[in-house]
């Protein structure tokens, strides 16, 4: 017989193993794609790899008009940055408004969340129809931008609500009694304290917009975003070049995540957000 502490550590090992299996399940496909993207010029999209080379990355770089991924990549990046910035501003404002407990804030909350619940294809399609009726030209930097913000905003909003939920409002009040106006108190006290949440909202905005397919499908007009371009290429011909695209963007995402993780870590070292405050 083992004691309950022994069983506890056994449980820990089992759950740990399951977690590792899950992480492998999550990451191995991407790793496989990454590996295949380095296959030789005659290589296919499945194993075995025919030699190793950077051929498909070179292909990616000197692309023809037909399969050039660079313009969609630039569009998607710009779109994601714009969505990220918009999400940050609007979600901080909306969460601040929720703190004020205005009349109908419950309805506002649920309407915001509707953006998460509503199926993307329908939202995109409905939006495209409405724009057509209104005579608005569809384009990735106007219509797609709008419809994507309606998707990314609720995530940023929820993030900011959670952050403000454990925010000690006495700290703001202390600043007011020390002579800070509301704007100064927000700039000097509130914003620095919720900055990790703001960055989180921004990351949501970026990553959700960057790989959004359903909402972009009907709304981009003639110039496609990266997910649409990849999808179109898949329809035409399947080469490891697609894998090279995936690997490249994953690589840049990892760098971005790493950067923000480091920033978080540095900030946590200098600020302890977890205050010993109740209520």
């Amino acid at each position: 017989m083992i004691g309950w502490k022994g069983r506890l550590s056994l449980t820990g090992w089992i759950l740990g193993a399951i977690t590792l299996v899950f992480l492998a399940y999550q990451w191995l496909p991407i790793f496989t794609l990454g590996l295949l993207s380095f296959s030789g010029p005659t290589g296919g999209t499945t194993f075995p790899m025919n030699g190793t080379s950077l051929h498909w990355y070179e292909e990616l770089w000197r692309a023809t008009v037909m399969n050039d991924f660079k313009p969609p990549l630039v569009r998607s990046s710009l779109l994601a940055l714009a969505c990220s910035a918009t999400t940050i501003v609007l979600s901080v404002m909306a969460a601040q408004a929720m703190r004020g407990q205005f009349r109908g804030n419950g309805w506002f909350f649920y309407l915001m969340l509707l953006g998460i619940m509503a199926p993307g294809i329908l939202v995109g399609f409905g939006f495209a129809i409405m724009m057509r009726l209104m005579g608005v030209e569809l384009s990735w930097d106007t219509t797609t931008f709008l419809v994507q913000v309606s998707w990314t905003l609720p995530f940023g909003f929820l993030t900011m609500l959670a952050v403000f939920n454990r925010f000690d409002k006495k700290v703001e009040e202390a600043a007011l009694t020390l002579g800070a106006s509301r704007l100064t108190a927000f700039r000097r006290i509130t914003l620095p304290l919720v900055l990790p949440g703001v960055i989180g909202a921004g990351l949501f905005g970026f990553s959700l917009s960057y790989d959004e397919y359903a909402r972009s499908m009907f709304t981009t007009g003639p110039d496609a975003t990266l997910p649409l371009a990849v999808m179109a290429q898949l329809d035409r011909q399947l080469t490891p070049e697609i894998y090279a695209v995936g690997t490249t963007t994953t690589f840049f995402s990892l760098i971005a995540v790493l950067f923000f993780t480091l920033a978080f870590w540095a900030m946590r070292r200098s600020t302890s957000l977890r205050r010993s405050s109740s209520a």
Binding site: L178, S181, P192
Partner: peptide, 28 residues
């Protein structure tokens, strides 16, 4: 508004600014 009144306030759990050094927040 509070910022125009000739008062100061000390809060029960002190409400110190967690991101500022002692010198910085005393000078606030």
């Amino acid at each position: 508004p509070p910022w125009q009144r000739d008062i100061a306030m000390m809060f029960q759990d002190f409400a110190l600014f967690p991101h500022m050094t002692v010198a910085k927040q005393v000078g606030f």
